[in-house]
């Protein structure tokens, strides 16, 4: 969504995003965990009391694109819901919401994961990188540049996830062959079928052509 679109939306009064944001904050009650005894009756004094969180929001701290963030999320909030909602990082896309398409791919401690199938609470203390974190200042990363120059996108919906999978691949294997690239993006679906150009873009970035 471009800035202009956003401005237009806001002038129309209640926006969908604005409404959702407001609703999520309204629902954010005092987010502290409770110590509940186990469901069974007998419990001696030595037995572990198990921390039970929720269902209301609870405080979490994580690092997103190098920035330490303190926020709140309920136990059933996925990482994708957290980053697209309250954190307003809408680069990661929700498509299948079942971990099969890869459009929501982000890196957790450097490894690609589907943020739709990963709980925000599990991201506590982890280092998250989203597509918004790929740029250095106002410059595209070499991989992003080669995606542009190789025309490695059509509708663009798979692109943020593709970029994250390819970024992780190049980090692990700076000069992947075609088969290795195919394996690297085997969790990302492109309905437009732009795979050939994505192979070329990764190859170009790997060989220094994306700078």
């Amino acid at each position: 969504m471009s800035r202009d679109n956003k401005a237009t939306e806001e002038t129309q009064g209640v926006t969908r995003r604005g409404f959702l944001k407001g609703a999520s904050f309204a629902a954010a009650a005092v987010g502290t965990g409770s110590l509940l005894p186990p469901p069974q009756t007998a419990s001696s004094q030595n037995e572990e009391e198990v921390l039970i969180l929720g269902t209301e929001e609870t405080k979490i701290a994580l690092t997103i694109n190098g920035e330490n963030i303190s926020t709140e999320a309920s136990p059933s909030t996925t990482l994708l819901d957290l980053i697209r909602g309250p954190l307003d990082l809408t680069g990661s896309k929700r498509v299948c919401d079942r971990g099969s398409c890869g459009a929501c791919t982000v890196l957790v401690d450097g490894k690609p994961i589907c943020s739709c199938s990963y709980l925000a609470l599990d991201a506590q203390g982890k280092n998250i990188q989203t597509v918004e974190g790929l740029m250095v200042g106002d410059k595209l990363s070499p991989l992003q540049n080669s995606f542009v120059s190789c025309d490695a996108l059509q509708c663009g919906f798979c692109t943020p996830g593709m970029l994250m999978s390819c970024t992780a691949l190049l980090e692990k294997n700076p000069n992947p062959n075609r088969e290795e690239i195919a394996k690297g993006i085997s969790g990302n679906l492109c309905r437009c079928g732009t795979y050939q150009n994505i192979f070329e873009a990764v190859h170009k970035a790997a060989t220094g052509g994306g700078k």
Partner: peptide, 22 residues
């Protein structure tokens, strides 16, 4: 997705206790 609570046991013994019978 229906909201749920989350139990965070620190031991397997604690986990089986909190699991219950259902």
């Amino acid at each position: 997705m229906k909201s749920f609570k989350m139990a965070m046991p620190k031991t397997l013994e604690g986990a089986v206790k909190v699991l219950g019978f259902d």
